[in-house]
């Protein structure tokens, strides 16, 4: 069954794309297999306008106030925040590790840049993730084509501009195929 796509309300400011918020939380002690990952990830809701975005976002906990092993994902409507999704499987992500205390501000700046189409890379952006971990937090932005160096360079330069990060911040690009290999390498039978 195909879900009805959301539309902007009367007088609202439409976004270039519709987006969906997702939330996931790792159950301690469980292996992170694809199946359990998909079971742990919950849709919060979709929006089509600036005003609808604020209605969701204003009621959400700020990433810096989350505890445990949790993630917020914001992806274009129709793209699952998983490597296996058709839009992601040839793609990759820029990863920025943040010391504790920076996640809420960086996440907000990142998603506002994405919703406002600040990256200027056509259809390439898939979504963004903030991952709250024990000692540090991680934000990432996913794009469709990992091999397109012009696109990945442009995303990196836009990230530097919109996040206003300390100059020594390390940014790392990781293809999803590498992420899959790495995670398989940690399984006992691989």
């Amino acid at each position: 069954t195909k879900k009805k796509m959301v539309v902007p309300g009367a007088g609202e400011h439409p976004l270039q794309y519709n987006y969906t918020f997702w939330y996931s939380r790792r159950t301690p002690g469980r292996p992170a297999s694809t199946q359990s990952y998909e079971q742990n990830i919950k849709q919060i809701g979709s929006f089509a306008s600036v005003e609808q975005f604020w209605r969701f976002y204003s009621h959400m906990i700020r990433p810096g106030d989350l505890t445990g092993h949790s993630d917020f994902h914001l992806f274009k409507e129709g793209i699952k925040p998983m490597w296996e999704d058709d839009a992601n499987k040839m793609g990759g992500k820029w990863i920025i590790r943040l010391r504790k205390g920076l996640a809420s501000r960086c996440w907000e700046n990142l998603i506002l840049a994405m919703l406002g189409e600040q990256f200027m890379v056509g259809e390439e952006i898939c979504g963004a993730v903030v991952s709250v971990r024990f000692q540090e937090d991680i934000i990432s932005i996913w794009n469709k084509t990992a091999s397109d160096q012009g696109t990945t360079a442009r995303i990196r330069d836009t990230l530097r501009r919109v996040l206003n990060l300390p100059p020594n911040t390390i940014m790392e690009y990781k293809t999803h195929t590498d992420s899959i290999k790495y995670s398989l390498g940690r399984l006992p039978w691989a």
Partner: peptide, 21 residues
């Protein structure tokens, strides 16, 4: 077609607009 581009300030200004409440 044209892309819908918004800067950070424009988006933040919509945060408290009556229509968003």
């Amino acid at each position: 077609g044209t892309r819908i581009i918004y800067d950070r300030k424009f988006l933040l200004d919509r945060r408290n607009s009556p229509i968003a409440q």
